[in-house]
């Protein structure tokens, strides 16, 4: 198993956001951000304190997103970041699309927040912590999950 340090743009999306993304796809509505080649982080941060870029942030359980993940991969998502195991269906979809599933350490949210350079809500602010956030990360530690 390899450890990797991510630098670049990732998007947060967890339960409610996944539900909404798939509703948009199924009804042909245009999403407010591009899924093609996107990295999705299953996370909902705490609110940022004054003078900090981002609140505490860390992975939530990936398997809750399993029912939506193949649809996201079919629409171009390339990297998934979360914790825990994936369903057989998701694993084969990851292989089919030559995508990646990365595991981040859960319960390490203060440390991970230090790797966030910028954080902004892209859409669906009504979902609170479950809104989609665009994160710029630097040296964000993950482990490459063996599928």
């Amino acid at each position: 198993m390899d450890k990797v340090l991510l630098t670049g743009t990732i998007y947060t999306a967890r339960d409610q956001a996944h539900k909404r993304i798939v509703e948009f796809i199924e009804t042909g509505k245009e999403l407010p951000f591009r899924l093609k080649d996107a990295a999705i982080f299953y996370a909902g941060p705490t609110p940022a304190k004054p003078n900090s870029v981002c609140g505490a942030i860390g992975p939530t359980t990936s398997s809750r997103m399993d029912r939506y993940t193949p649809i996201l991969l079919d629409n171009g998502v390339k990297v998934l970041i979360g914790k825990g195991e994936r369903s057989k269906e998701v694993r084969s979809s990851i292989l089919k699309h030559n995508a990646l599933y990365l595991v981040a350490v859960g319960g390490a949210a203060a440390l991970l927040s230090k790797c966030i350079i910028s954080c902004e809500v892209v859409c669906w602010e009504d979902l609170g912590t479950e809104a989609i956030h665009r994160l710029e990360v630097k040296d964000f530690p993950c482990y490459v999950s063996v599928i």
Binding site: G58, A109, A110
Partner: peptide, 26 residues
């Protein structure tokens, strides 16, 4: 990897405590 994950957890507890950041976002 196991050592690295445990060390990450310890580092996180220290950062959380000293910088007043939640240990976990949940």
């Amino acid at each position: 990897i196991a050592k690295d994950v445990l060390q990450t957890m310890l580092d996180n507890y220290r950062i959380a405590r000293s910088e007043n950041i939640p240990v976990c976002q949940d």
